[in-house]
């Protein structure tokens, strides 16, 4: 088991290295000369050249990548061109709302989507099944900002149940935090719920035809136990996989959701960075998000061995 975990962690290293190389190249080929920006308008070409040398910008690509990568490993993501603050500090300031949004969405989506998929498979062919399948197609087709504005219009503007926009830190109480995040979470979660429910239903349909399910029913196990203990456990691998892969949807959707609901998170940071062409910030955010995504899928692989003891690498 330990050997497997170590081996699996080692296989993520080339993937992370590629992501790092890609993200570094992004800044490398980005238009604009950092040395000229730092030197200012009045600088002579000789001054710019001196700054370029002192920053090491005249050295070869791979040498610069190596140095940059070494700094990243030490937790240094560079300095924002626009605010002159360290990128890590900017990200640290904005990470709580984004993390809150994504974790709440994940919990909400999984606890809604999995039962939905199980029930649809159990009642296959009935109106319940058709409603779930219909919802899945709908969830895939309506873009995240459309759902966001629709929900905000009905539940915040017209019914006035929750605030329209903004974010309350969790330190100021769970309830205000939750009230602010519930609409964004449903918004962000819709496509995720559609994806998980669809895969859960498909996998469960297969599992429910197995002999051991019939045996369990024959010996009088209750429907609930057959579905959620015997069957769901055997359907778990594809479901857990899609939960992991779907995190990519959450990350992309978070940028938009934060913009619709004016949540001051990493998405907003990205948006502002794009408008100002603040490359080190863009680089840092892409790197952090990709790192999280790789880690989530690493965790998914490790969960496999827990839900299915047959899996041995």
């Amino acid at each position: 088991m330990l050997a497997f975990i170590v081996r699996r962690i080692i296989t993520t290293i080339p993937v992370m290295a590629f992501v790092a190389l890609f993200v570094f190249s992004l800044l490398y080929i980005a238009p604009g000369d950092p040395a000229a920006v730092i030197a200012g308008d009045q600088a002579s070409p000789a001054d710019v050249e001196r700054i370029r040398q002192s920053l090491g910008l005249d050295r070869p690509y791979l040498v610069r990548f190596g140095e940059w990568f070494f700094r990243v490993l030490q937790g240094d993501l560079g300095t924002s061109i626009f605010t002159s603050l360290p990128v890590t500090q900017l990200i640290a300031q904005r990470i709580e709302p984004t993390l809150s949004l994504m974790v709440l969405t994940l919990i909400l989506a999984v606890s809604i989507a999995v039962p939905l998929g199980v029930i649809a498979a159990w009642k296959a062919g009935t109106w319940v099944d058709r409603a779930v399948v219909g919802f899945a197609v709908f969830g895939f087709s309506v873009p995240v900002f459309v759902i966001g504005y629709l929900l905000a219009y009905v539940f915040a503007l017209k019914l006035d149940w929750v605030p329209v926009q903004g974010y309350t830190p969790i330190a100021q109480g769970i309830w205000p935090w939750f009230k602010n995040l519930i609409l964004p979470s449903i918004t962000l979660g819709t496509v995720y719920i559609a994806l998980i429910a669809r895969i859960t239903r498909a996998t469960m349909l297969e599992v429910l035809q197995q002999d051991y399910v019939r045996t369990a029913q024959a010996k009088g196990v209750s429907n609930r136990d057959v579905l959620f203990l015997h069957s769901l456990k055997n359907a778990a691998v594809p479901v857990v996989t899609i939960i992991g892969i779907g995190v990519a949807l959450l990350i992309g959707g978070a940028v938009v959701t934060e913009s619709v609901f004016a949540i001051p998170g990493l998405g907003r940071l990205t948006l502002d960075a794009i408008l100002r062409r603040d490359y080190p910030v863009i680089q840092g955010v892409v790197l952090i998000f990709s790192f999280v995504y790789v880690l989530v899928n690493l965790a998914v692989d490790l969960i496999y061995t827990l839900v299915d003891p047959r899996i041995r690498y």
């Binding site: 992501v19 992309g252 990709s290």
Partner: peptide, 11 residues
């Protein structure tokens, strides 16, 4: 694999 570990929208 490396490209797929960057969420498409972010890429």
């Amino acid at each position: 694999d490396g490209m797929m570990s960057i969420p498409p929208i972010l890429l």
